[in-house]
Amino acid sequence: MISKRNIKGSETMSAILLVVNGDVKKEHLVMEMSRAGFVIGVDGGTNIIHALGYTPDLIVGDLDSIREDVLEACRKKGVRILRYPAEKDETDLQLAIEEAMKLNPRMITCVGIFGDRPDHTLANLQLMQVPAKAGIHVRCPFDGGILYVIDSKLDLKGSPGDTVSLLPITEMVSGITLTGFKYSLTDGEMVPGIPLGISNVMESERAHIEINSGILLVFHLQKVTSE
Score class of each variant (00 low, 15 high):
I40M: 01
R75W: 09
K182E: 13
V218I: 09
Y183N: 13
T186H: 14
G9C: 00
I81C: 03
L52Y: 02
G37E: 07
L52C: 02
L147K: 11
L216F: 09
T91G: 00
T170I: 11
G161A: 01
E205A: 14
I176F: 10
M1S: 11
I209Q: 11
G145L: 10
E32H: 06
R83M: 01
V138S: 04
A96F: 04
D23I: 13
G144F: 09
M33V: 09
L63K: 03
M202D: 08
V39E: 06
R106F: 14
S204N: 04
L103N: 04
F142H: 12
K223H: 08
K223R: 15
Y148V: 00
L167T: 12
K88D: 05
I215E: 08
I146W: 06
V138P: 05
G44P: 01
A132W: 08
M33R: 09
I66C: 08
H28L: 08
N200C: 10
K4C: 01
R5T: 14
G193Q: 01
L196R: 04
A132N: 09
V149G: 07
I66R: 09
I113T: 06
F38R: 01
I16V: 11
V191P: 03
F181A: 02
V224A: 12
K4S: 03
K8A: 13
L122W: 13
L95D: 04
S3L: 03
V191N: 00
Y148K: 02
F219D: 02
G180A: 11
L154K: 15
N6A: 14
T46L: 10
S184D: 09
G175F: 13
R80S: 12
D43K: 05
F114L: 15
L103F: 01
